[in-house]
Design a protein around this nucleic acid. Sequence first.
DNA 1: TTGTAAGCGTTATCAG
DNA 2: CTGATAACGCTTACAA
Lengths: 332, 332
Amino acid sequence: MDVTIYEVAQRAGVSIATVSRTLRGTGPVASKTREKVLKAVEELNFTPSRLGVSLAEGRHAANGIVFPNLSGPYYTEVLLGYEEVASELGRSVLILSTTGRTRVRDLVKDLAGRVDGLLIFGHTAPDDVIAELIQVGMPLVFVSREPLAGADTLRAENTASARLLAEHLALHGYERFAFLGAPLVTGDDVDERWQGVRSVLGAAIEAVPTGHYTVDDGHQAALRLLRSGDRPRAIICSDDEVALGALLAAEELGLAVPDDVAVTGWDDIMAARHARPALTTIRQPMRELGARAARALDELITAARSTPNHLTLTTELVIRASCGHHPQEEPR
Amino acid sequence: MDVTIYEVAQRAGVSIATVSRTLRGTGPVASKTREKVLKAVEELNFTPSRLGVSLAEGRHAANGIVFPNLSGPYYTEVLLGYEEVASELGRSVLILSTTGRTRVRDLVKDLAGRVDGLLIFGHTAPDDVIAELIQVGMPLVFVSREPLAGADTLRAENTASARLLAEHLALHGYERFAFLGAPLVTGDDVDERWQGVRSVLGAAIEAVPTGHYTVDDGHQAALRLLRSGDRPRAIICSDDEVALGALLAAEELGLAVPDDVAVTGWDDIMAARHARPALTTIRQPMRELGARAARALDELITAARSTPNHLTLTTELVIRASCGHHPQEEPR
DNA sequence: TTGTAAGCGTTATCAG
DNA sequence: CTGATAACGCTTACAA
């Protein structure tokens, strides 16, 4: 990309203003002139410099997204939904992964300087940068986090479905529960799930931490949990990956799921259906979260909307085999 | 981000050149002046406009990456390795996902206009755009593709390990094989794997297509394959995800792995170790591929190097349970 | 040590 | 309809 609008103008025998007008369709251009210009553009294989355009237009035509990592389908799916819609809207997407990173503050600020708007997962960005960004009016949408003034927040419903799940498990007659993948910060998705199940299970459930929310960490934590003296009758996991890890641990210890210990997940990632036994879980529209975030950002950026939106998408309890036997599945 | 270098200069009572010098550490600045400038910067909370900087510097300080999708760990891992190193080198990364996209040509060109260099997976970008990009001297590194003039290519070794794997399976005494996940384009990783195994197995192996290289598609294809009259004794899969799908299919049909049918994968993703039975596979340094690509691009961009490199990283045959019983594992 | 001014590549206003 | 020309926000010779 080396040829500039000046060369095109010169070759076409017109001014750069005319070239610009022709290419963007803004303002009138005589059809003979237009032809000359297009011909020159063609011959020179001219593409307007993004930098020049952006500087003049005063916008990047790009969105950012900050996530912890990409282990497992959750962030990945949201990311893809986001990128697809952003792309439709003519915006590129810049990514920033924060786990294992030092100076996240600076990275986020730098990213913010390159885009017109940002999707931020949960609490992956330091509060003070967020405050700064809101302060300067940068369009922001948070996914998987409690509402926040000055920015959009978007999440899938957690508490109600957590209750639904807890109640379903209680109906199985289980009495001791564990919540594997204890919340790390208050106000994010996992915390809401925990609050939800605890609100119905009360003292019968205890929170067990896992480190990260990965298959591996779930596996390790479940191993410890299941080996302990009084193991729970049912393990409600923070998400499907942790649950997959729990399934592994149970198998390793020779425990049958759901007969010895029931296990449930969250998200309904593809592997949940394929797991053995298939995971009872809560389906959450990951792709749509990303897509909606991109659209919300677009509204904010184009100033089609100025007041923040706080949206909660509905989820669905998906009952499969891992939570216990159900009459309709096992006719007597 | 609204305050410009002019306001800082004014407030500090100096020229914009001095502000720039102070901030970038280029050229001399009296320490008293420096202090005044830094104070003004602080008070105004000034951050140089990325667009301004890039336009003046003549570089984006950003890299792009184009991949088909993010289903499964392979692209994801490479992406993360890439982003991490790019970030260390002070470059942001812009992504472009191509599956299900129309006008990939335009998307790639647009992306190219926003970055200093591009990592492109296999054959995800149309040949003519690639030719154009090489033509204009855009730094390019291809991952998982056969060498190409005018750009770096980077891949993990395929053919030799494919032979190794095939020979190992032959030692088990198997006679009929299938390669699940037939190559879609010639010259990419999967094609090399196929060529490798076929070179030792000859007519004893047949290629079976899967659509995409996903768990689901592998599952479906394996189901058809295993139901057919003369099912193969061993299934060599194009990658771990397809293999995971094959495992599912075998289980569904009541076939024991490896006793009724052996299955192998490729990549050694995390799930391969956790699968039941654990997958025999070829370990490939995905993260490192991404990291190296970022460094290679940096060399090309900074003109530290001008001749293309074509690098092949070594892989490792990881023998686990899914390919058959081994003496050392099962002492008589 | 500091300031002036010429780029960098567009867009868009305002006269013709 | 078209062309000067002033932004846009910075970097960097070149002078002083």
